[in-house]
Computed example of a mutant assay.
Amino acid sequence: MEVRRAVQLTGGSSFTVTLPKEWVERMGLSKGSQVIIRPAEDGGLYIYPDKPSSRRPSSVEIALTEDLSQLLVGAYLYGYDTIKIVSKTPITDTWLEVIRRVVRGLAGAEIVDEADESVEVQIVLDEQTVAPEKLLRRQYNLVMGMVEYAVNSVLMDDSSLARVAVTRDEEVDRLYFTLVRVLRSALVDPALAKRLNTSPLSLLDIRVAAKFIEDAGDQAAEMAKEKLRNKKPMSDDVKQEFRNIAKIVLSTGFDPIEAFFSHEITLVNRVTGLRTEFMKRSEEFLRKVSGRGETASLYKLHFHLARVCEDLADVAELSLPIKPYVARQT
């Protein structure tokens, strides 16, 4: 709904604009109701009722098909509170285990009813109590731990470390799904965004950053899986070169996520500089592994590590445009 209103001057000093009747009725407002007006980053204004969100619990039915896992996750991310899975025939134990596995990966989701031909999932997550920044930082911390485990599993020839990295990927996915659900809810509910002390633009940036971080976690998990598939140790010279490039990635530390939230150009430059250094040092690693028997596996390890490096730099660069520094005016 888009309407155009003329600005009126009342009382000689106050400017007023009338609110659309349809919106007022939908929000349950009347004479004397309070509304919140907040400037938007694009120069506009946000207007919403000064009361808790009245978003009603929503439900959806999805059919049991081969795409069930994706449909169940999609319904969760979309913000539905109740998800009912229905089948034309009795649901088998195999399908029940698939449903339970997916539900275990969704924060706040619980199976509340099981019948022969249906399963009902209830989401009891309170978005108002979930701070997007804390979730994103937690996700980042887990992913950097995964990268370290994956790298050390290769350098120390330790499969147990690789298994830890793979297992942690499930927790990263769980955090990512939770964050996306909260962000979507806040984007369609300005009052929720206000209580979370954030803006739509910030929510979009966090959504993109979360995807980069989630991808870095996936790459770390793939690196660990490659180690589990190929248990042949690296030669000393190749291992040293891999250590050199891995050290560059790990040395980014928390700078990418701090750059994202602080908009400090010095942090952005440091992270992007490390990416450039990684690309240069990679040439030596790729030269050493060329023509060896295990070349394919070594190339895969490098590919996944390079993706991690790129993802971390992308997170830092999301802080652009950099916080403005105004020169002294005379």
Rank of each mutant, 00 (worst) to 15 (best):
T167M: 00
Q122N: 12
I111W: 15
K225G: 06
K31L: 15
T276H: 02
F212L: 05
A313V: 13
V271F: 02
S153Y: 08
L72D: 14
I36D: 00
C309E: 10
E117K: 09
P233F: 07
E127W: 15
T92V: 07
K239R: 11
G12E: 14
G74S: 04
G291N: 00
E110K: 02
V268K: 01
R104F: 08
D158Y: 09
I62A: 05
L136K: 03
S14Q: 09
D93V: 10
I37Q: 05
I265T: 15
K31V: 14
P57V: 00
I206K: 00
I47A: 02
A193C: 02
A63S: 14
S118G: 14
V3D: 08
D205S: 06
T276Y: 06
C309P: 09
S153G: 12
L64H: 11
P200S: 03
A115R: 13
E25G: 04
R207E: 14
L318V: 04
A216E: 03
V249S: 08
L298V: 14
V271Y: 07
T65S: 03
E264I: 02
Y149D: 15
P190R: 04
D314V: 12
L45G: 05
E41P: 05
L267P: 02
N197E: 13
V73G: 03
T94K: 04
R138K: 07
D173M: 07
G12F: 05
E22W: 00
G43C: 00
Q8V: 12
D157Y: 01
R281H: 00
V86M: 11
A210E: 15
L204A: 14
T330Y: 13
G293T: 06
V35L: 03
T252A: 09
V17G: 00
P90N: 01
V268N: 03
D215P: 08
F15P: 00
K51I: 14
A6N: 08
Y140F: 14
L64W: 08
V35P: 15
Q128G: 10
G79E: 01
L161A: 04
T10A: 11
F177A: 02
F242N: 10
L305E: 11
T272G: 09
T272K: 10
E226G: 05
P39R: 03
L192F: 09
E294Y: 06
M234R: 07
A193L: 02
P256A: 09
K211N: 10
R55F: 06
V151W: 08
G44P: 12
V249F: 00
K194E: 01
T198I: 09
V102H: 13
L201M: 14
N230D: 05
L183R: 01
